[in-house]
């Protein structure tokens, strides 16, 4: 079987973003940056997707939507939080309706900071996500995906503490 990471399909969802990161995500796929020429395809269907790009913080109403989209994606899957709002809540963190970053509801593998995140860094984040996707695929094959996820989580926790 050909490697899935050669042509990762991404699903983009705007949680509670200001649009800045959303148009930059699209700018990654259109001329000038054009990640599509390498086989990265933006899909609207969560069941086709390998990488989940979340922009914006999580609010009361969209948290179930994000969770549902994540659950619908087939394994292995990687979540990328694009922009500082998706990482931590950003400038809106203190408002009454923002719960925080995307990691409040789904496990995030790659954090891409920036306001708005630049296309270069978004592409960097996707490349990183592809690496993790391969690791997860190997783990899934050997039937130890849960183990991998747990170890991955622990590693991230240590990074945060450090």
């Amino acid at each position: 079987m050909a490697k899935m990471s050669k042509s990762p399909w991404v699903l983009h969802y705007d949680a509670a973003s200001c649009n800045g990161c959303d148009i930059e995500v699209l700018a990654c796929l259109t001329p000038v940056y054009d990640a599509e020429r390498f086989g990265v395809i933006n899909t609207g269907d969560p069941k086709h997707a390998d990488i989940f790009l979340i922009t914006g913080g999580i609010n009361e109403q969209c948290k179930d939507v994000v969770k549902q989209l994540y659950d619908q994606m087939p394994n292995p899957k990687v979540v990328v939080a694009v922009g500082i709002c998706a990482c931590s809540g950003g400038v809106f963190k203190e408002t009454y309706n923002i719960l925080g970053g995307a990691d409040q509801v789904v496990p995030v593998d790659v954090y891409v900071p920036g306001c708005a995140a630049r296309p270069e860094s978004i592409i960097d984040g996707i490349v990183k996500a592809i690496g993790i996707l391969d690791e997860k695929k190997a783990a899934l094959k050997e039937g130890r995906l849960d183990e991998y996820e747990a170890a991955h989580c622990k590693k991230k926790q240590q990074e945060v503490e450090a």
Binding site: N59, E60, Q61, Y96, N97, L99
Partner: peptide
């Protein structure tokens, strides 16, 4: 209209 957590913020 807005489904928010806080009531009349």
């Amino acid at each position: 209209f807005y489904k928010i957590g806080a009531e009349t913020p």
